[in-house]
């Protein structure tokens, strides 16, 4: 989300006396704060969408006499568990990249973003493995609420991962020196990525574990 990149102090005002100029430069500009607020509202809004999906999942699950139904395969736990670790590592890479970018180390930032996108791709790959596995075991979306909920939640989440990793990939290329990218772009996509990760954790617990 583009914001106007104007420093807090306009040129026609006397620069305030600050003890630590470096820290002062790291402070967010008005435009950045605005896009930050916008991102928080967007994520809150989008969280409502996932909340509604989880609500739907809870309702169909509570209605069912057996979960999983006796004639349908149970979901794997291990590979999705590994995926949880993958997405956590990916979030960590974004944090490191964001910090490196703030310090002006654009090469590092670019590498961090690239690693995050790569881990995102790994996540998707493993997720596809999970899908293929359960599909072969006979779990089809038309087999009732159990597979419906599983496929809908994981697929909708995977779509968000796809969007996020595409954005991180583009940012990784853009962030390479000397051009660099804006720090709010890194920050905001980072927030989106953490959000997707947090949703995954909730999804893993609700759909696979419980």
């Amino acid at each position: 989300m583009p914001g106007t990149n104007v420093r807090r102090t306009p040129a026609d005002l006397p620069a305030p006396e600050v003890p630590d100029l470096h820290r002062y430069r790291l402070r967010r500009t008005e435009g950045e704060v605005t896009s930050y607020v916008g991102m928080i509202i967007f994520l809150g809004s989008w969280a409502m969408m996932f909340a509604a999906l989880f609500f739907a999942y809870a309702v169909v699950r509570l209605r069912a006499p057996m979960w999983p139904p006796p004639d349908q395969p149970a979901l794997p736990i291990l590979v999705p568990g590994l995926n949880t670790a993958v997405i956590a590592a990916s979030s960590l890479a974004v944090v490191l990249a964001s910090r490196a970018h703030a310090l002006g180390r654009h090469r590092r930032a670019s590498i961090g973003l690239g690693v995050a996108a790569g881990l995102g791709a790994l996540f998707l790959g493993l997720q596809i493995l999970v899908w293929v596995g359960v599909w072969r075991a006979g779990l089809l979306p038309s087999g009732g609420p159990y597979p419906s909920a599983f496929y809908a939640l994981t697929a909708f989440h995977a779509l968000h991962v796809l969007v996020g990793l595409a954005a991180l990939g583009v940012l990784a290329i853009r962030a390479r020196p000397p051009r660099g990218t804006t720090r709010s772009a890194v920050r905001l996509w980072g927030m989106f990525w953490h959000f997707v990760g947090a949703v995954w954790v909730a999804l893993y617990v609700a759909v696979y574990l419980v």
């Binding site: 809004s45 989008w46 969408m49 996932f50 909340a51 979306p141 038309s142 609420p145 419906s148 809908a152």
Partner: peptide, 25 residues
Amino acid sequence: NALFVPVLGSAALLLLLDRNFGTQF
């Protein structure tokens, strides 16, 4: 709008899945 339109969105999404992908919500 920000809070509740996404809830409608998820309802519409699940309905689309029911209509086109044979799910059973």
